[in-house]
Nucleic acid binder design. Sequence first.
DNA 1: CTCAGCCGTTAAAACGTTTCAACATCGAGG
DNA 2: CCTCGATGTTGAAACGTTTTAACGGCTGAG
Lengths: 335, 335
Amino acid sequence: MKPSVGIRDVAQHAGVSNATVSNVLNRPEVVAPATRQRVLAAIEELGFVRNESARQLRAGRSRVLAYVVLDAANPFFTDVARGVEDAAREAGLALFLCNSASDGGREREYLELLHEQRVEGILITPVDAESAQFAERGTPVVLVDRETTNGAHCSVAVDDVLGGELAVTHLIESGHTRIAMVGGPLSIQQVRDRRDGALRALANAGLPADALTVLETKGLQVAEGRGAGERLVGLPSSRRPTAAFCANDLLALGLLQSMTQQGLRVPDDLAVVGYDDIEFAAAAAVPLTSVRQPREQLGRTAAQLLLSENDPDHEHRHVKFKPELVVRASSAVKR
Amino acid sequence: MKPSVGIRDVAQHAGVSNATVSNVLNRPEVVAPATRQRVLAAIEELGFVRNESARQLRAGRSRVLAYVVLDAANPFFTDVARGVEDAAREAGLALFLCNSASDGGREREYLELLHEQRVEGILITPVDAESAQFAERGTPVVLVDRETTNGAHCSVAVDDVLGGELAVTHLIESGHTRIAMVGGPLSIQQVRDRRDGALRALANAGLPADALTVLETKGLQVAEGRGAGERLVGLPSSRRPTAAFCANDLLALGLLQSMTQQGLRVPDDLAVVGYDDIEFAAAAAVPLTSVRQPREQLGRTAAQLLLSENDPDHEHRHVKFKPELVVRASSAVKR
DNA sequence: CTCAGCCGTTAAAACGTTTCAACATCGAGG
DNA sequence: CCTCGATGTTGAAACGTTTTAACGGCTGAG
């Protein structure tokens, strides 16, 4: 182990007091140029690296934000993270990403650690917003892409019911009357909301609720989408939906792939609508119709809200964005 | 601001000394059950959260690893990160992800911060391995997916020259004699290595070096792949390659999309091979032939190497994995 | 020659933990 | 009744910074 050179070593080496070294580090303008040079030289020579723990202990505040992400492998969240980072960076803060990987246990561990680290603030897309007890522990927390049930935090979300409605209304207008909803588990608020939106669209169009076949999946990954595709094709053709609304682009991509493999064409045999409009949605060989969420803006807004928590007159706010339908080839009008 | 309850407050509230509280926290078995209960109750009641800065300052060590990732939006890196996290977690450490987004400036800032934070270790896929001066600053650093030029660090990489060779040999064996290499910028070591592998494949087959048309891109994202596709189609058909080897799956997906949009078929009009074998490669509507790298294992190995740096007899090691070709529909044999 | 004011520097006191040696208390063994 | 070891608890000293108030030296005004 290195002997770990500290501020006092530098001070001694430069023939000044530690206070002066500290000043060079934090308020260079206050110390005489000659001294400053001498100190900087000593720092360089000894390879001194400031100890952030000590600094933070004394100062009481840190310079980092953290975003506990639900699934780092989902491009949607990395896009949100980009927005967060931009905003953080403008405020002179760094961003640490933590991946809960949809695991409540990991999520709790990370939250605990972040609280103990006294980060400036925590952004989180929680595994489960209901059971989520982000008890006020001194560190401000903002929920991302989830609505908070109790009013204990700020939150930034997108209207998922509206999103579901947009998607399914589009399918109905394209001539579909038997529609599948692919997504799950239904314990996830988002999935439920999007389904409810789908049902609302049916109601608006005067279609019966059983025009929607719900195929519940165990998760929101590509593989689940493939599985759903097989289930779908297995249905008797009289009852088989002619269109599918997926809770997620990953599911939609899996579904798409499964269709092609089974020799069915999209959108002719099955129209597909996804959700999130991740970059790969447009890049799919059958470009995917999808419900776009303002991803970067979601992150950016969340970060700004988080930073405003320090204002003395802060009140928790709940921002809700509107999603937008992006029509592409995967849902071309039915002939 | 909260008055911030500390260990002494807990101690006072429970009628014990701070040393005892500390013991309850760190070595519960050493303190009498009755006292322990009392202390735990006090902790609960006051909402005490341990201050990691102070703890770390005193203990000299932290419980986190960091991975500075080149591009969080590239699924390849999130897969590597998963491997890192698994290994870290087994060792009882948490993982913070930092995204340099291919920006040397950000990378430097993050490194600086992480050094100051005295994290247990740093994993990094650097923007530029050559100029990379990760001067020994006391915190161990391991390079991921890059070979280190000087022997100052451990590194874990994959044989990119071999990967390029595998890809292009496959294309040659499928009957192609005019091949494009899509990727860039060439300042990136990986891109160069993969190109060199491609050239080696040509040489092995007795083909001239100009059988390879290098289309250099500005980056490794999907959009760049689309751009390359347009350039490719613009070539006079006598000189147009019948196959493309992309430095990256993102490029390949963009290229694929561009082909379909322009009414060309894959693989009939253009065979495509990607690199990394990210999940979306298999999920593309024309499943993508790709060079697979052992992503999770890459991360896992890097983390283990990092953790071994504390051994007194540690020597820097350079692990190099072999890539593997995964053939799918996008490169079916030419008729 | 004195004094006020300024500038650059410093000693010392925090910040909230962990750790170590020392200290009580108690029951058992002599 | 004394000693000993075991068991639980504690006071105080670190850890490496930042900060505050005070200090000494100088300059220029009176």
